[in-house]
Design a protein around this nucleic acid. Structure first.
Length: 508
RNA sequence: GGGGAUGUAGGCUAACAGGAUAAGCCGCUUGAGUUUCAAUCAAGAGAAUGCGAGUUCGAGUCUCGUCAUCCCUGCCA
C-alpha cells in the first residue's frame, strides 16, 4: 500500500515553527517513500478558526517549498459524515446519548478547571463508566431524543481491556480502558469533536501514517478506541518530540508571539532552504549525523522515521538581543546558506529584498548585471539575513545611506587631519588607471607614505566614508566594486563632518 | 491527583546488538589577519551521560529506585 500522510493544522493563528516542523517531516516522509502528502484544515472550532490563518498556513507551506498533493480537505465540510458516523455508533451500541445538561465554561479558566477537577476526581478514584445515561435502554434513549431533548454522543468505552499501539518513535504504548473516559464524539449542538473528526477524516483520506506532535500521544488511545468501534484498522502512528521555549516550557503563540511564527522568518530575511534545513535537524538526524547542511534532495533521500529521536528540543531565542533574536544555530545556518549558495539562487532573493526597500534598479538585471553579481558576492560573506543587503549593504546600492555614529567617531573624527587628507586621497585615486583592487591599494599606500600616516588610518576612514560602516569586506575590494568616480566622490563628500555640525546645532 | 513520555557540555545532535581518552555542529574564549569584521584560518575551555544503587571483567547503552521537566486528563484542537 502506498504511503499517504497528512498535515492537519487548525487555522487558529499563524503557522508556528512546531507545526511547520511537523509539516516538513510529513512531507519528507511522503517524498522519501513516493507517497502522497495531503493537507487538511481542521476548522471544526468555529469560534477560533479564521480564513486569514488558513491563508497564512498555506503561504507558510509554500515558502518552505512543501507542496501538497490532491485537494485541500476542510474538516468542516465533512461534518455530515462525522455526524452520521456518530449516529451509526449509537445504533450499533458502541456509543450512547448523554442527556446531561451542558456545562458552560469560560475559555479563560478551562485549563485550570480541568486540572482541578481531575485532581479532585483522582483523589477519590473516579469511575469513568458512572454516567447515568450509559445504560439507558435504546427505546428510552430514542424516545427522549425524538422528543427534542438535547444530548451529546459519547463513546461507550468497554469496561475491561486495554488499547495498544506501536508508535514508530516512542515504541509500544498501552493504556487500560479504565483510565479512559467515555469521550464526547458529538456536541449537543451537533458539532463533531476533534477525536471523532480526525479518525473519520483519516479513514476517509486513506491516511496510512499519522505523523504528528507528541502532545497527541495520549489522545491516540482514544482514537484507537474509535477505530475499534468503527471496525477499521488504525494507521501507523509516529509521534514527534516537542519543540520547547528557552525556559523549556511549551512554545506558545500567546506567550512568545512573533518569534515562533514561521512567516516571521520569511519577513526577517531568512532563506527558506536554510530555515527548512535547520527545522529538519530539530528532532531528527540523518544516518550521517555529521552532515548537517543538506540539499532538499539529500534530505528527502536520507529521511526516515527511525532517525527521529524522543526527547524534546529547545528552540532558543531572545528578542531583546538583536544579534540573538532567534536560535543561534538557525541564524548561523542562514548565514552559511547566504554565503555559500549558488549566486544565481541568491540574487533573486536579494532582488526581492532590495525591491521591498526601494533600492532595486532594473539595470542590475541588464547592463549592470555583472556588477550586481560581483557586489552581492562580495558583501554576502559576512551577512546573516537577506535584510542585511538593504541595511548594512545599502551604500552599495544607493548614495543615500546613513553613517554609523560609532564608526564615524572611531574612524573619522578621532584624527582631525582626515578632513583634509581624504579629499587629497580622492584626487590621487582619480588618477589611477586601470582601476582595480591592486591599483587602488598601491595608490593608497603610496599616498599614506607621502602624507606620513599609517595606511590603516586611511583604510578605515575610507571604509566609513564609502559605506558608512566600521566593518566590511577588504577595503580595496570595496574600492574596486564602488568604482573610481563614486569612491572619489564619497571620499570628498565630508558628510560625516556636516552631520556632526548639524547634530550639534540641533541640540542647541 | 491519575496516566504517559523524556533526561548526553549553554543549545541542536552522535556513539552499530554493553567494549578503549564520550564525537560533530552552534555558541563561548584566545590568537592570526589590511590598525575593520558577526567572514576566514588556527588553538582552547566546557559533560564523571539528571541523581543513587544493582547486574557485568566492562554500563551513556540493561534492571530497579529517585528527582526534574514536558504532554494528556474539555460538549478545545
Amino acid at each position: 500500500m502506498s504511503v499517504r500522510v497528512r498535515f492537519a493544522p487548525s487555522p487558529t493563528g499563524y503557522l508556528h515553527i512546531g507545526s511547520a516542523r511537523t509539516a516538513l517531516f510529513n512531507w519528507l516522509y511522503a517524498r522519501n517513500t513516493g507517497g502522497k502528502f495531503l493537507l487538511r484544515i481542521e476548522d471544526t472550532d468555529l469560534q477560533r478558526s479564521t480564513e486569514a490563518s488558513t491563508r497564512s498556513i498555506i503561504e507558510g507551506l509554500e515558502w518552505l517549498g512543501l507542496n501538497y498533493d490532491e485537494e485541500i480537505v476542510f474538516q468542516s465540510d465533512n461534518a455530515d459524515k462525522h455526524r452520521s458516523a456518530a449516529a451509526r455508533l449509537v445504533e450499533e451500541g458502541c456509543a450512547y446519548r448523554d442527556f446531561t445538561p451542558k456545562e458552560e465554561r469560560s475559555d479563560a479558566t478551562v485549563k485550570q478547571g480541568i486540572v482541578d477537577r481531575a485532581r479532585a476526581a483522582g483523589a477519590e478514584g473516579v469511575n469513568h463508566r458512572a454516567n447515568p445515561y450509559r445504560e439507558l435502554s435504546k427505546a428510552e434513549s430514542d424516545a427522549r431524543a425524538s422528543a427534542g431533548e438535547p444530548f451529546a454522543i459519547r463513546l461507550k468505552v468497554p469496561e475491561e481491556g486495554q488499547t495498544f499501539f506501536a508508535d514508530v518513535v516512542y515504541g509500544e504504548q498501552s493504556r487500560a480502558y479504565a483510565e479512559i473516559e467515555d469521550l464526547v464524539l458529538l456536541r449537543s449542538d451537533g458539532h463533531p469533536l476533534y477525536n471523532l473528526a480526525v479518525v473519520i477524516d483519516d479513514i476517509d483520506m486513506g491516511v496510512t501514517d499519522v505523523i504528528r506532535g507528541q502532545d497527541h500521544l495520549t489522545n491516540t488511545h482514544k482514537q484507537i478506541l474509535i477505530y475499534e468501534a468503527l471496525g477499521v484498522t488504525p494507521p501507523r502512528f509516529a509521534h514527534l518530540p516537542l519543540i520547547l521555549a528557552p525556559n523549556k516550557g511549551k512554545l506558545s503563540k500567546r506567550r512568545h508571539g512573533e518569534v515562533v511564527s514561521l512567516t516571521t522568518y520569511r519577513d526577517r530575511g531568512f532563506v527558506a532552504a536554510a530555515f527548512r534545513n535547520f527545522l529538519a535537524l530539530l528532532g531528527w538526524s540523518p544516518e550521517e549525523a555529521e552532515k548537517e547542511i543538506m540539499t532538499l534532495d539529500e534530505m528527502v533521500e536520507s529521511f526516515s522515521l527511525e532517525g527521529i529521536h524522543r526527547s524534546n528540543a529547545v528552540f532558543n531565542f531572545n528578542e531583546a538581543d538583536p544579534r540573538h533574536w532567534t536560535d543561534d544555530k538557525a541564524l548561523w545556518m542562514n548565514a552559511e546558506y547566504i554565503r555559500t549558495m549558488p549566486l544565481e539562487e541568491l540574487t533573486p532573493l536579494v532582488k526581492e529584498e532590495l525591491r521591498s526597500e526601494k533600492l532595486w534598479r532594473e539595470e542590475y538585471e541588464d547592463w549592470e548585471r555583472n556588477w550586481f553579481e560581483r557586489a552581492v558576492d562580495l558583501i554576502r560573506q559576512r551577512f546573516f539575513t537577506l535584510k542585511d543587503f538593504s541595511a548594512q549593504g545599502r551604500a552599495y546600492f544607493s548614495d543615500d545611506f546613513d553613517f554609523e555614529p560609532a564608526a564615524v567617531k572611531k574612524n573619522l573624527l578621532k584624527e582631525p587631519r582626515l578632513k583634509e587628507l581624504l579629499p587629497q586621497l580622492a584626487d590621487r585615486l582619480e588618477m589611477v588607471e586601470p582601476w582595480n583592487a591592486e591599483t587602488s591599494e598601491q595608490a593608497l599606500r603610496a599616498f599614506s607614505d607621502e602624507a606620513g600616516v599609517k595606511a590603516g588610518l586611511l583604510i578605515n576612514a575610507s571604509r566609513t566614508m564609502l559605506t558608512g560602516q566600521a566593518v566590511g569586506p577588504s577595503m580595496f575590494e570595496v574600492f574596486d566594486i564602488m568604482g573610481r568616480d563614486r569612491s572619489a566622490q564619497r571620499l570628498r563628500s565630508g558628510v560625516p563632518w556636516h552631520e556632526q555640525i548639524e547634530n550639534v546645532s540641533e541640540r542647541k
